[in-house]
Design a protein around this nucleic acid. Structure first.
Lengths: 350, 350
DNA sequence: CATTAGCACTCCAATCTTCCGAGTGCTAAA
DNA sequence: TTTAGCACTCGGAAGATTGGAGTGCTAATG
């Protein structure tokens, strides 16, 4: 069903007002706050039609109307006005990004903080992960007689390390020789390739003490499993208290239980279902959000070197979508810009 | 004022009951549930005296009594019965600790998870920090023509790293020579010693390109500042919903706003005020908890190699102190035992 | 003199009642 | 097709009612 222009205007007016006030919107409100040139009776008729079509809902007979999930969807896709960031907001963002030496680990963390402050919702991001990470160098560095650090440096400059203690004493020269061999042998290999099979074949070719090679290879195997190790991190979880829907303890419980640590798998999979462009998930549109009245705006960020992740805002379905979407878009574009031009930069991901 | 035996028994009975029920405790309740051999009238008289002395409070005239902060203090210090962990609980703990290769970063994290599950409160820990960390080795490992990774390996086996990109091309041999010199020069140095003054003196003695040495030294300076970098991490924040005091949205807001990320400085300082043994902070005993009805039980853990931190439980003042204290004590002793015997072990702190 | 039964009194919290008004849907006129 | 007008609905705020758990005091008791 295609909506008439007037219906669209009325729907937009209702959703705009509802987002601003969190109160069901009545026909006379629309009359007062929007210049539609028709009477409240006409608006009522149109509202009834919009309800019939599934875009609006009534909490009860004598209340105003509230957008349905479908209503929000139409609003997000077609109706809402573009929100433009204020100068102050843009300044906040740029000054936060202009630290001289950015540690990769912190960049996205602070961005997520900024997001939550600017929008007054909760920000979520997944830690960056990369496909096609290859080994650039492997080092075994002695710490004391019976322990050394195994290091794998990747093409992205990330460093994975593990301290290994041994029962025997190994000469630094032995470790160095093994380092060199491993670097030579595995340079350019994808970190996902360190399967037990590959390594056990390899093991027979290396004339080194078994304890040593076993420990190192176990580290490598663990690495290949770690590729999937994406975490979900949040900031501004208590921002929800700024919104009236969370004056009810039940809503609050629902929300906090949804975003809690134990639930990160579900959130991760929810985020991963979105595509390459900024997308909006509204209430029941996704089964895991069933009856939770939660919406998400999900975006993608890239830190260069193939490191990518999701950055999202989560909040009540009555969310200021226009503001959230434009803030998110602006921020992710800033990140991409900053990181596309890699200067000297810390890298803490391991 | 020293309490009579009977007063102590009554006070203990009231606090025990209140911890279990979260309801103000009346004289007839005590009569029913505890065998004190006196009538409710006598108990009432004693209760009035205990209130007079500041150990109890009345929410209103016709309600039962509730412990005051002072009451809890006496309870924790003198009255409460020892709680002994059940076999199931001990099994849960040991099986969680018996992973073959423990990553240091995860040990304390999973311990904190276990804590929150076992106690139904929120667990907090500070990331381990160490005093007297010294440099064991410095490496500069080439990644590609114009970038390399600078690594500082400490006596504890922790690895700090930063990826550095340069405008000029440096031969691997140059980097290796510099590595060797820096390792030789700074081996055994405390990481706190890399002040700009020390380093700028040093700089003149090293016949290497300035860009290179500047970048590396900036990394070292940053390291020395980083020593103080202790984070506060929580698990089980939504456990509070299991306790009836958090059926009120205001209590919940207060609590969540107190433990939120922005507040970690205050929490850190609160934790650091405690000594070497397990200690309890009850309600208004500390100004930052003023009128928040929050208590903490704080303990110390040690991961070996000088790495130490605080592990704590935070919850309402009506907390099952006996259970929390004994769980916390048992867990920290387990950690200390496990880590005192360092086998091959991952180390992810950097 | 400490203890206790008895009783009047207090006051919260749960439940019920009342009532206001914002909002609707329908009808009939423009 | 739009609109003025009107009867009707219903949630929620404000007030009234009531029950019961709990107290403090007094006077009797061993």
């Amino acid at each position: 069903m295609e909506l008439s222009d007037r219906k669209k205007k009325i729907l937009q007016a209702i959703i705009d007002d509802y987002i601003a006030s969190a109160e069901p919107v009545g026909s006379s409100h629309i009359l007062k706050n929007h210049d539609l040139g028709v009477s409240s009776a006409t608006i009522r008729n149109e509202m009834a039609a919009l309800e019939e079509a599934g875009y609006l809902e009534k909490p009860h007979t004598s209340a105003g109307r509230v957008p349905s999930y479908l209503g929000y969807r139409v609003y997000v896709d077609q109706l809402m006005n573009e929100y433009s960031l204020s100068v102050t907001e843009i300044n906040q963002i740029t000054s936060a990004l202009r630290t001289k030496y950015l540690e990769l680990r912190r960049v996205i963390d602070s961005i997520s903080d900024i997001m939550s402050v600017l929008t007054d919702y909760t920000a979520i991001y997944t830690t960056p992960s990369a496909t096609g990470i290859t080994v650039s160098n492997i080092k075994l560095v002695p710490v004391d007689e019976r322990s050394f650090v195994a290091l794998v440096i990747t093409n992205t400059g990330a460093v994975k390390n593990r301290t290994i203690r041994t029962s025997k004493i190994f000469e630094p020269a032995v470790l160095e020789k093994l380092s060199n061999y491993l670097s030579y042998r595995f340079a350019g290999c994808d970190t996902g390739e360190f399967t037990p099979e590959v390594l056990s074949n390899e093991k027979n070719l290396i004339p080194v003490d078994e304890e040593l090679i076993d420990a190192v290879f176990e580290f490598l195997t663990d690495l290949s499993n770690e590729v999937e190790n994406v975490d979900v991190v949040m900031s501004g979880t208590t921002n929800i208290f700024k919104h009236p829907e969370f004056n009810s303890i039940d809503r609050t419980k629902d929300f906090l239980n949804f975003i809690k640590k134990d639930n990160s798998k579900i959130i991760k999979s929810l985020l991963s279902q979105t595509g390459d462009s900024t997308s909006v998930i509204i209430g029941n549109e996704n089964p895991v959000l069933e009856n939770k009245d939660i919406s998400l705006v999900v975006s993608n960020y890239s830190l260069g070197g193939g490191l990518k992740g999701k950055l999202a805002i989560i909040g009540p379905t009555r969310m200021d979508y226009a503001k959230v979407i434009s803030t998110l878009d602006y921020l992710t574009s800033c990140i991409n810009e900053v990181t596309a031009n890699p200067d000297e930069r810390k890298n803490d991901f391991d």
